[in-house]
Design a protein around this nucleic acid. Structure first.
Length: 582
RNA sequence: CGGGGCGUAGCGCAGUCUGGUAGCGCACUUGACUGGGGGUCAAGUGGUCGUAGGUUCAAAUCCUAUCGCCCCGACCA
């Protein structure tokens, strides 16, 4: 393609709302055009990159025996009601919906388990047809609370979603493992190192799931990992070991209630009682769990030096959503101001649970649901009933992980997620097949997603410098550019066109930059757009010399014009497969 | 959902407090000179000032409503 015909537009200034590097650079390079909050037009240049990312996904999934199909974006509400997820997604605020002229309500696909299960239900009769894994690359919609960071968090995006159907759990395990490997090939094939981490299964349910994270300082997810053991988990799911409660063998002392006016935090309480360290206090966090037809009150006890993990707690409550009580609700339910809730005199309406760090604590300090008062030397079982103990705490960097190594922290962009769903959806929707035994049984399902448009943004997030984007070759909109510095000079242009034609003949995706820009403007522009290799046809052309520029290093070599094509071909073909072993 | 802020040319912004001819930079068009790191000069194009209503002789500016966008918070007991 000729640059003069590519509708290239670049900007010298950053957009006012760009916070992260990929957003900034993609906007400046004219790759994305904002149409509204969380909605972007993709430029022709960006679409080339997205198409390449899509094709890498296709290549690896096809190699794993997956079948591409296409499912509707408009999905009937009643289909989602079969699995109970309409309520769930509405409660979570994720589902965008619309209605047709008859008043029928449709969801705009945030994902497609229901639709694909309905498809398989209608088309699968026998175990002989299984296993089947289908996938599509299609637009998805999510009503994000707060779209931001350019293409990294948007309301409308391009996603690959795959769904596997197996005869039993053992068969699912094999399929899941196959897809896990394919996922690593996909990310490596894009030129990125993604690592798999244990993840919360979120709204999908199911027995196992793994997220694929692309390390980036601006990532919205936090990963905790152990260096040697290979343990890595999303902070939403991560566990760590903790020190046993201090004074476990102390004799219980008599409970006494003291005045603690206007305290709000454990640190402030510590000011009143310097002898009681924060880790001998118990915080009482008050929540409501929202279910589809009712709300429940929950109180979670946790040691003063620990932080609650609301995802773990929500999973325990089984609610669709978990919300902290407002100050007003706290007053209404406990009669006390915010800051004084406690397991003592707790209204019966509350379900009380406690984090495992609370188990075994003695002579602790906690609230008594009375404004401006706290109790000291409280003992579990004696002063309040023994609650259910479980892991409700947030693991933190530096704490010993499951294998005992100190946990390290890394920020990442969630690029993919794989789940073992089991029969949750197929059973609910009656998607059964005739087994070998002659009895109908539900298909065992897995689901798998890759944020294709997000991956492309993540690639920019990971590969850039002060001058702009540095595309990895597998995603680059063009693998190479032939830049003619003075396109008005017919002879120079002819040399450029000859190199361009040869590269094309060799199968290189090449752009001829024939735009009449000043050399400085042209160099900056090409660097901003981030093409991996540039052959500069300039002042030395009369001596038969051109320049070979490497975007990643910004190094320039003068080479003979006759070597230009072979140099580019060699470099590009070496990098086309990303990080895959050849 | 709570708090704060912003809507003025394609982009980035000033002008609003104190009502009186709508501006600047970039980009874009034409011409000339340039030609290896966003070059120079000259002449131009482009805006119902988010929308609707109100006050006023007069509204980008004041008032009301509304729509949109951005940021922070929503891990506090």
């Amino acid at each position: 393609m000729r640059a003069s015909r590519l509708h290239l537009v670049t900007y010298r200034e950053d957009p006012a709302d760009a916070e992260v590097v990929s957003h900034r650079l993609m906007a400046r390079a004219g790759l994305i055009f904002k149409m509204g909050s969380g909605m972007y037009a993709y430029s022709p240049l960006l679409w080339r990159a997205i198409r390449k990312a899509t094709n890498i996904v296709r290549r690896e999934l096809d190699a794993s025996g997956c079948l591409e199909l296409q499912l509707p974006i408009l999905q009937d509400k009643s289909l989602w009601e079969e699995t109970g997820r309409w309520e769930k997604y509405k409660a979570a605020g994720v589902m965008l919906s619309t209605t047709d002229r008859k008043g029928t309500t449709f969801g705009l696909a945030p994902t497609a388990e229901e639709v694909v299960t309905a498809f398989m239900r209608a088309t699968t009769k026998s175990y002989k047809q299984l296993p089947v894994t289908v996938y599509q690359v299609h637009t998805k919609f999510r009503d994000e609370i707060r779209p931001r960071f350019g293409l990294l968090r948007v309301k409308e995006f391009l996603m690959m979603d795959a769904y596997s159907f197996d005869v039993d759990d053992a068969a699912l395990d094999i399929t899941y493992e196959e897809l896990r490997k394919a996922y690593h090939r996909v990310f490596r094939g894009m030129g990125m190192e993604a690592f798999g981490v244990e993840a919360d299964s979120g709204d999908f349910g199911g027995s196992g799931s793994m997220e694929f994270m692309i390390p980036a300082s601006t990532g919205e997810d936090t990963i905790l990992y152990e260096e040697a053991s290979g343990y890595a988990a999303n902070v939403e799911k991560a566990t760590s070991q903790f020190a046993a409660p201090e004074g476990a063998d102390e004799a219980p002392r008599d409970l006494h209630v003291e005045d603690t006016p206007n305290v709000r935090t454990c640190e402030e309480l510590n000011g009143f009682f310097p002898d009681v360290p924060v880790h001998r206090m118990v915080k009482t966090l008050l929540y409501k769990a929202v279910h589809h037809d009712h709300e429940e009150l929950w109180a979670c006890l946790i040691r003063g030096d620990q932080q609650a993990n609301e995802i773990k707690l929500r999973n325990h409550t089984g609610g669709l959503a978990l919300e902290m009580l407002t100050d007003e609700e706290i007053r209404q339910h406990t009669g006390a101001k915010q800051g004084f809730a406690g397991p003592i005199n707790m209204p019966e309406a509350f379900n009380i649970v406690a984090d495992v760090t609370v188990e075994g604590m003695t002579n602790l300090l906690c609230g008594v649901n009375e404004t401006d008062k706290h109790a000291l030397d409280v003992n579990i079982g004696r002063d309040f009933p023994v609650p259910t103990f479980a892991d409700f705490r947030t693991a933190r960097e530096g704490e010993p992980g499951p294998s005992g190594e100190p946990l390290k922290l890394e920020k990442g962009i969630e690029a993919g997620h794989i789940f073992k769903l089991g029969t949750e959806y197929t059973a609910a929707m009656g998607a059964t097949f005739m087994g070998q035994t002659g009895k109908p049984q539900p298909m065992v399902m897995g689901c798998y997603g890759i944020g294709v448009s997000r991956c492309v943004a993540a690639a920019v997030e990971q590969h850039s410098d002060d001058n702009g984007i540095v595309w990895p070759v597998p995603l680059a909109p063009f693998e190479a550019v032939v830049a003619v510095l003075k396109p008005k000079k017919a002879e120079m242009l002819a040399h450029g066109e000859a190199i361009y034609a040869s590269l094309q003949a060799k199968g290189i995706e090449v752009m001829l930059d024939d735009r009449p820009l000043s050399p400085g403007a042209k160099f900056r522009d090409l660097e901003l757009m981030g093409f991996p290799y540039v052959i500069v046809v300039g002042r030395d052309i009369d001596e038969g010399v051109v320049e070979f520029k490497v975007r990643a290093t910004n190094e320039t070599d003068k080479i003979a014009i006759d070597d230009a094509v072979s140099t580019v071909v060699e470099r590009v073909t070496a990098e086309r497969t990303g990080l895959l072993e050849r």
